[in-house]
Simulated assay, not measured.
Amino acid sequence: MPSTSMHLRILLPFKVFAEELEVLRIVAESLSGAFGLLPNRLDCAAALVPGILTYETREGGEVCLAVDEGVLVKTGGEVLVCVRDAIGNMDLAQLRQVIEREFLSRHEQEQSIRSTLAKLESSFIRRFAALHHE
Rank of each mutant, 00 (worst) to 15 (best):
K119I: 05
E29H: 14
V67Q: 07
S105W: 01
L92A: 04
L92T: 07
I10C: 06
E110F: 09
L104V: 08
V23Y: 01
R41G: 15
D68M: 03
A47P: 00
A130G: 05
Q109M: 09
E121V: 08
P50G: 00
C44G: 07
T54D: 11
E22G: 11
R58H: 11
H132D: 13
Q109H: 13
F124C: 10
C64F: 15
E62Q: 14
P2E: 09
P2V: 12
E22S: 12
H107R: 14
A66E: 03
M90P: 05
M1I: 12
S115Y: 08
S115K: 14
S123I: 06
R58G: 13
P13R: 05
M1A: 15
C44W: 04
D91C: 02
L42R: 10
E121R: 13
E59D: 14
L11M: 12
S115C: 09
S3E: 15
K74I: 10
E56V: 11
L31G: 11
S123F: 08
F35Y: 03
E20M: 12
R25N: 14
V73A: 02
L48E: 06
D68T: 02
Q109D: 07
R58T: 14
S30T: 10
S3K: 12
L37N: 00
L117H: 13
L104C: 04
P39Q: 02
T54P: 06
V71A: 12
P39W: 00
P39V: 01
R25A: 10
A46Q: 13
L12D: 04
G88V: 00
M1R: 15
R114D: 15
L24P: 01
I99W: 00
L8Q: 04
H107G: 13
I87Y: 05
E20T: 04
A47C: 08
